[in-house]
C-alpha cells in the first residue's frame, strides 16, 4: 500500500471515531452544486412495489475488480451486486471510511436483512435481486462521467429490471 492510501485510511479511521475531525473533512470538500429543477417521480404503494438498493459504500463481490483507490478523484464505475450472494462473499473497497463495523454486519451500509423482513411481513412487495454499488468519493473530472454515463446506465438498468423504488445508502 502506498503512502497516500495509508494516510487516507488512517484519517478515515480517525474521522469515524472523532466526529469533529469528520467535520473538518466535510468543510474542506466542495460538493457538487446542482442547478435546475429537481427530478421527481411518484412512488408506487410499498406493498405493490419492487425495491432495489444503490449504495456509495464501495461494497462488492470478492470476485469483482476493486474500485481504483489510487486516483485522488475517485472511481466513477459501479459494480452489479447479486443480493442473494453478496453477504457470503463481499469486500469493501473505499479508503475514506472505517469498515470495521460494516465488515462485522454489512446491513449497516446495505440493509438487505431489514428489507427482507419487510417483504416477509407483506409491507414491501418485492426486493430486487440485482443492486448496484459505487465508491462514493468522486471528484473533479470523474463527476461528469458519473452523472452522464455510469449513473444513467444504472438508472436504465433499474428501469429495465422493472424496479419501482430505490433506497440509496452512503457510507
Amino acid at each position: 500500500m502506498d503512502v497516500t492510501r495509508f494516510k487516507n485510511r488512517t484519517l478515515a479511521r480517525l474521522a469515524t471515531r472523532f466526529p469533529r475531525l469528520a467535520q473538518r473533512f466535510i468543510d474542506g470538500y466542495q460538493a457538487q452544486e446542482s442547478a435546475g429543477s429537481i427530478p421527481w417521480a411518484v412512488p408506487k404503494p410499498l406493498r405493490q412495489a419492487k425495491l432495489a438498493l444503490v449504495t456509495t459504500s464501495g461494497i462488492h463481490h470478492q470476485r469483482q475488480a476493486p474500485f481504483d483507490m489510487n486516483d485522488s478523484d475517485g472511481d466513477p464505475s459501479y459494480r452489479t451486486l447479486n443480493g442473494e450472494e453478496l453477504f457470503d462473499d463481499f469486500q469493501i473497497t473505499h479508503d475514506y471510511y472505517d469498515h470495521t463495523d460494516a465488515r462485522k454486519d454489512p446491513n449497516i451500509i446495505f440493509p438487505l436483512g431489514p428489507l427482507r423482513e419487510l417483504v416477509s411481513e407483506g409491507l414491501l412487495g418485492r426486493l430486487a435481486q440485482t443492486h448496484y454499488a459505487f465508491m462514493g468519493h468522486i471528484d473533479g473530472r470523474h463527476i461528469p462521467t458519473l452523472v452522464e454515463k455510469t449513473a444513467r446506465e444504472v438508472a436504465a438498468k433499474l428501469k429495465a429490471d422493472q424496479v419501482d423504488l430505490v433506497l440509496l445508502t452512503p457510507a
Binding site: I26, D27, Y29, A31, Q32, E33, S34, I38, P39, W40, A41, V42, P43, K44, V54, T56, F134, G136, I143, L146, V147, A151, R152, V154, A155, A156, L158, K159, V163, D164, L165, V166, L167, L168, T169, P170
Partner: peptide, 29 residues
C-alpha cells in the same frame, strides 16, 4: 450519492436517500 439519486429519479423511479453529511445533500439537492 445525491447525483446518482437524481439520475435514477430522472429515469422515472422514485428514490429516497439516507444522508450522514447534511451539507453535501443541501448542495446536491
Amino acid at each position: 450519492m445525491g447525483l446518482i439519486q437524481r439520475e435514477i429519479e430522472r429515469a422515472g423511479i422514485a428514490t429516497i436517500g439516507i444522508s450522514i453529511v447534511r451539507e453535501f445533500t443541501e448542495k446536491v439537492q
